Amino acid sequence: MHIHHLGLENSVLNNFILELRSVTIQNDSMRFRRNIERVGEVLCYEMSKSLTYKLGDVVTPLGKKEIQILHDKIVICSILRAGLSLHQGIQNYLDQAENAFISAYRHHTNDSNDFEIIVEYLAGPSIEDKILLLADPMLASGQSFVAVKKALSSLGNPKEIHLLSVIAAPEGIEFVSKHFPENTHLWIATIDSHLNEKGYIIPGLGDAGDLAFGSKLQH
């Protein structure tokens, strides 16, 4: 898997990450969603440089100009619910892309730290021979991405897969690398230290879904 760790370079991206992490800022849910969206825009812009383009013409009021235009067919798929803001950021730049949505959540057994990923909802177009972008803000254990990949197989075989996340743990990156094709690309804003015993990223930022959309009842 090809890993693109954008946070290693100095850019305004790190300001967005700071605000997402800060306990004094992140509780403003509208600002939190917007920062996730802005990170999605940065990740998407950098990812777009790796796509396929073809030469086309544009007619202006004063003439004609050749320009390289995006040629790939793209499907953006976000993991509900935390992925919605990240999805919006990607879609802001790839507004002609098709869209898919899938649910994935942790189901803990016997009140233990062990869990499995449950997928219950999927809506999307064919992904056959298209570029598939999977969006989820937190790449913790990596099990959600793997479960989603399995569920999406019913929609076809993509030409290439790109994973876009805000924060990742090394354990999750290693797990995903073992279950996705070698030519998969991971576009990540920052990589943290490790997972704790409950499978949460440390230092992370907390529960991205709750911070973006409010707390939820556990079932």
Results as ranks from 00 to 15, higher is better:
137 P>S: 09
72 D>I: 09
5 H>L: 15
205 L>C: 01
101 F>K: 11
201 I>P: 00
155 L>S: 04
3 I>P: 00
176 V>T: 07
173 I>H: 01
1 M>F: 08
116 E>R: 11
18 L>S: 11
12 V>I: 12
100 A>T: 09
190 T>I: 14
58 V>I: 15
152 L>F: 07
215 S>E: 12
32 F>M: 07
36 I>E: 03
20 L>A: 03
60 T>P: 01
154 S>R: 13
99 N>G: 09
9 E>R: 14
1 M>H: 09
18 L>N: 09
105 Y>I: 10
199 G>K: 11
142 G>D: 08
139 L>E: 02
188 I>H: 00
11 S>D: 07
17 I>S: 00
91 Q>G: 05
199 G>W: 12
108 H>D: 12
147 A>N: 08
67 I>D: 06
46 E>M: 11
97 A>M: 07
170 P>Q: 06
118 I>K: 05
108 H>E: 14
49 K>S: 05
67 I>N: 10
145 F>P: 02
127 I>P: 00
105 Y>F: 14
64 K>C: 13
118 I>W: 05
33 R>N: 07
58 V>F: 08
108 H>V: 13
126 S>A: 11
38 R>S: 13
179 H>G: 04
40 G>H: 04
124 G>Q: 12
64 K>M: 14
90 I>K: 00
205 L>Q: 02
37 E>F: 06
4 H>K: 15
163 L>S: 01
116 E>K: 14
105 Y>G: 03
182 E>W: 05
70 L>A: 06
176 V>N: 00
152 L>Q: 03
206 G>S: 06
24 T>R: 10
27 N>K: 13
27 N>I: 10
65 K>S: 07
178 K>F: 11
19 E>A: 11
216 K>Y: 13
133 L>E: 04
92 N>V: 09
132 L>Y: 02
35 N>M: 09
15 N>A: 12
172 G>Q: 05
46 E>V: 12
145 F>M: 14
144 S>T: 15
79 I>F: 02
66 E>S: 14
163 L>G: 00
133 L>Y: 04
46 E>A: 10
117 I>M: 12
180 F>D: 09
88 Q>M: 10
